[in-house]
Write a protein that binds this DNA or RNA. Structure first.
Lengths: 219, 219
DNA sequence: TTACTACCGACTGTTAGCAGTCGACTTAAG
DNA sequence: CTTAAGTCGACTGCTAACAGTCGGTAGTAA
């Protein structure tokens, strides 16, 4: 009867590897591990209190997410983004999300879609007076929802693979620049466009949103 | 004076992890490891003659590439694709490659681009009488080149992350269906559209190509 | 037969440790 | 002072072994 506190819902006990993954992702996208920083496996494993083997599995994943770059002898360092790379990341992001918007327009029951998106917007509105981190979080949640609602698992997976790079872009440009893109109204426009069911309009709206977002970051 | 056979060019001696990665990728996309097949770490490590630790690093990467799916207790199995998933994969692929085509049109020197693409087309033409595998290989090389030439590393990386899923789609649908999409002429059309510098046309051409490609696979 | 329990085999999660290599620093010869 | 050889430390690549857990199976009692 004991020991079943957490594992009831989907909140199962995460493996050490997953914990390390989350911890490192947060450390990197928060700037605690500054870009260019050289990562030493022994150091990290001691910090996180896990073995090198377990750590290395997490590092491979971060490497593939684009948060780490590999040097000459397998040396890993935190990826450094310049302005061109930020624009490139946002170009790919725009391609993915415009596909999402287009797909949502062609969905049979847009009722549930609209509902979920409005819920996400509400969360953003609520976060307006919160911390910068909270606002960014709710914004990303909105866009992640956009991809999830399409029902295209591959699309969602691709977007999530890019999420780390997106976070780095925002962090890199500076959070104060990043929040310029958190306008609730602009996001309402996106939902509105999807509501009309006009795929061309929805795509255009997303592309414009991404364009200005990228411009705001590198400006 | 001995032992410097390979490491001269970029052909450095690959680590065991990378070798295992390639071997497994090939085994999966060739169907040697059939979809749904349950993977046991101890079995694989013995087969590949490497330790479980090294193997696990490779497995993490394959998992993130979408070639493996994780079951209840960390059990991994070869991903199984149904027709919807194939369509979904090709939708994402289309989004990425249409971005590539659009980007190439806006590039300052399209001279080099045209040259490289024509070279890729020549390789396809040469492979026309070769084996099915060779034809597929040259086709993928063409599309990979498309992404590489944009200079957008993120785009290339995203496409390569999807490449395994694309290969699985072709394998899954059957190679004889897959080769229907290897028409040299249709690829010449793509290059032609890019040559004109008309981004809208280039995008449209790629989207049509991907549409028929997906249709051919699930038909 | 049914239900319950104890046990065994299989497999993943995790760890500590060995081995090879590259770079920096030191030392000695010119 | 400069250069070449030797040495040490740091760090990654890789491996073998331990630990925990789930699923099934045999055995026992009602």
């Amino acid at each position: 009867m004991a020991g079943l506190g957490a594992p009831l819902l989907g909140l199962e006990k995460k493996s050490l590897r997953e914990q390390a993954l989350s911890a490192l992702r947060t450390a990197i996208t928060s700037g605690e591990l500054e870009p260019g920083r050289h990562l030493v496996e022994t150091e990290l494993s001691e910090m996180l209190q896990i073995s090198r083997g377990t750590l290395r599995e997490a590092l491979r994943q971060l490497e593939q997410e684009g948060l780490l770059s590999a040097g000459p002898r397998g040396r890993l360092s935190v990826r450094h983004l310049d302005e061109k790379e930020i624009r490139d990341i946002y170009a790919v992001r725009a391609a993915l999300e415009s596909l999402a918007a287009r797909t949502l327009c062609e969905l049979p029951d847009r009722q549930h879609v609209t509902e979920s998106l409005h819920k996400a917007i509400d969360a953003m509105t609520e976060a307006t007076n919160g911390s910068l981190e909270e606002r960014i979080e709710s914004d990303l949640e909105f866009h992640r929802t956009l991809c999830r609602l399409t029902g295209n698992e591959t699309l969602l997976h691709s977007w999530e693979s890019l999420e780390g790079s997106i976070r780095m872009s925002i962090m890199f440009a500076g959070l104060e620049k990043g929040v310029r893109n958190m306008s609730v109204d602009r996001h309402k426009d996106i939902v509105g466009a999807i509501d009309t069911g006009d795929a061309t309009l929805a795509r255009k709206t997303i592309l414009e949103h991404m364009d200005t977002a990228a411009a705001n970051l590198v400006a």
